Amino acid sequence: MKIFIGNDHTAVEMKTAIVEYLESQGHEVINLGTNDLNPVDYPDLGFAVGEAVGKDVTSLGIVICGSGIGISIAANKVPGIRAALCYEKEAVELARQHNNANILALGARFIAVYKAVELVKVFLQTQFEEDRHSERVRKLCDYNG
């Protein structure tokens, strides 16, 4: 699977561990984030991953900043994106099962690196349940303000 990943300077270590895991599992990883500690603007990275996933609807995305909040807000500005900020396994499962989340957002300041990798595993293994959730997801996608 193709996975786009974007991170700011607070999340280089976490992104590196996640990329290593994903590549070890045979996923194609496209790194849209920074690789050093020089400050960058998380909105630009959230937009970039959101746009990439929006154009390739068979792909998924991962975005990481200090809290995960700002970068998830940025990604969700892109039409068709359902970025879910998750800190726990159960939230990741529900984001995929009920919301068909196509981007996982993580907070590097609040999640240990090993736990972030575990959350990514859950994100990739969990499927959308469709049925009663399909209409709700359609509403999320169709809303234009």
Rank of each mutant, 00 (worst) to 15 (best):
A84S: 12
H133F: 14
T58I: 00
H98V: 05
A11E: 06
A116D: 08
G46P: 08
G46D: 06
A52T: 02
P79V: 05
V29A: 07
I73P: 03
A52H: 01
A11C: 02
D142Y: 02
G68L: 12
I69P: 00
I71S: 07
D36E: 13
R132T: 08
G61R: 07
I62K: 14
A116Q: 02
H98Q: 14
Y21I: 04
L45V: 15
F4I: 06
K2S: 04
Y42K: 02
R138G: 00
G70A: 05
L22G: 01
L119C: 13
F128R: 04
G68C: 04
S67L: 08
D56P: 07
I64R: 04
D8F: 00
A116L: 05
A105H: 11
E23S: 12
I3Y: 07
N100F: 02
V122R: 10
F47R: 07
I103Y: 14
G26C: 03
L60K: 15
N35E: 14
A48Y: 13
Y87Q: 08
L140Y: 11
A95V: 13
Q97G: 01
Y42R: 06
V19I: 15
E118D: 15
D44G: 02
E130V: 13
L45E: 10
G66D: 10
E88W: 00
P39S: 15
F110M: 09
K115C: 00
F123G: 07
Y143P: 00
V117K: 08
V12S: 02
G33C: 11
D131C: 12
T34P: 04
A17P: 00
A101G: 07
I103L: 06
Y87L: 14
E135M: 04
I71Q: 09
E28G: 04
D44W: 01
L60Q: 12
V29W: 07
K2M: 08
L104S: 11
G50Q: 05
L104D: 08
Q25I: 03
D41Q: 06
V40Y: 01
P79T: 05
Q25C: 13
G61N: 06
E135T: 09
T58V: 03
T16E: 13
E51D: 06
I64H: 06
D44N: 15
A48M: 10
G26V: 03
G33D: 07
V122I: 15
T16G: 09
G145K: 11
V137T: 05
A11I: 01
N38I: 14
I71C: 09
L37T: 15
L106D: 11
V57W: 11
V122E: 15
G6K: 09
I3C: 06
D131K: 11
A74V: 05
G54D: 10
T34D: 04
L94Y: 11
L45F: 15
L60R: 15
L22S: 09
